[in-house]
């Protein structure tokens, strides 16, 4: 269980409140208008923003002040997910060993992860020589090796075409299924939320509302979401 306990997040002229819980293994789409604070919420969970007040708990353990790398969280960002000067293999291997050493075991596991996401034979390419979809797969392979129970995705697939994006979400679902991950994914597209299944969390008007089943939410959207969806 990921608990956001009376969390208050502030940036210069902006505040967001969250008081909610996400069950372990849930798959949560985060919806809401631009600028509402979706990324701010993920940044706080990922450890990149200290909350003004409140606590973040995982399985009852307070992680509010923990370093990003010490949290039970792997994050896939909107961009800059890969180091352009390192090969796919080395990028993935960083998920296992952040000192950058490439031991035989690390290498084997990284290669296996690449194979798992369908990138057999791409290990020695640098990101510049990979397509957008392939880059997303490399990132996902690394997140798998980080072996964290929570996976945060900050619109990482927004630059991909619809078919490719669907394919990536399915891959995320497969990985999450296999490992029992809790997934939080920001999206602009209700179709993504529906594809992800599970819950949706609406961020609007300075509040992150507790998650509700996505289908239920789409059938009867609250006012903020209704405006956003233009229904």
């Amino acid at each position: 269980m990921l608990t956001l306990e009376r969390l208050r997040l502030t940036r210069e002229d902006f505040a967001l409140d969250a008081d909610l819980a996400i069950p372990q293994g849930a798959r949560v789409a985060i919806l809401g208008p631009s600028g509402a604070g979706k990324s701010t919420l993920l940044a706080a969970i990922g450890g990149f923003l200290s909350p003004r007040s409140g606590r973040i708990l995982w399985d009852g353990k307070d992680i509010t002040g923990a370093e990003p790398a010490a949290r039970p969280v792997a994050t896939i960002f909107q961009d800059n997910n890969l180091f352009p000067h390192l090969t796919a293999l080395r990028n993935v291997a960083l998920g296992l060993d952040p000192t950058g050493r490439l031991s035989a075991t690390t290498r084997d596991r990284a290669l296996a992860a690449l194979r798992d996401v369908g990138l057999d034979g791409f290990a020695d390419r640098k990101p510049g020589a990979l397509s957008g979809g392939q880059q997303s797969r490399v990132t996902l392979a690394r997140a798998m090796l980080q072996d964290k129970p929570i996976l945060l995705l900050d619109e990482p697939f927004s630059a991909l075409g619809p078919a490719m994006k669907a394919e990536m979400i399915d891959l995320v679902l497969r990985v999450a299924e296999e490992r029992g991950l809790t997934v939080l994914m920001i999206s602009h597209d209700p179709a993504d939320a529906l594809r992800l299944g599970g819950l949706s969390l609406v961020v609007a008007d300075g509040v992150a509302h507790p998650p509700r089943p996505t289908t239920e939410l789409m059938d009867d959207p609250p006012p903020a979401l209704r405006d956003y969806l233009a229904r």
Binding site: G46, G47, F48, E67, P68, A69, A70, V73, A74, T75, F77, N80, N81, F83, H85, L86, L94, G95, P98, T99, G100, R142, Q146
Partner: peptide
């Protein structure tokens, strides 16, 4: 600003950060 968050989330720090990310960039 481009890679600080990624490095932090991976736990890349100190000389690994210098060697693997900063200097090559």
């Amino acid at each position: 600003s481009d890679y600080g968050r990624l490095a932090a989330s991976l736990g890349l720090s100190g000389f690994a950060w210098l060697r693997l990310v900063l200097l090559p960039r």
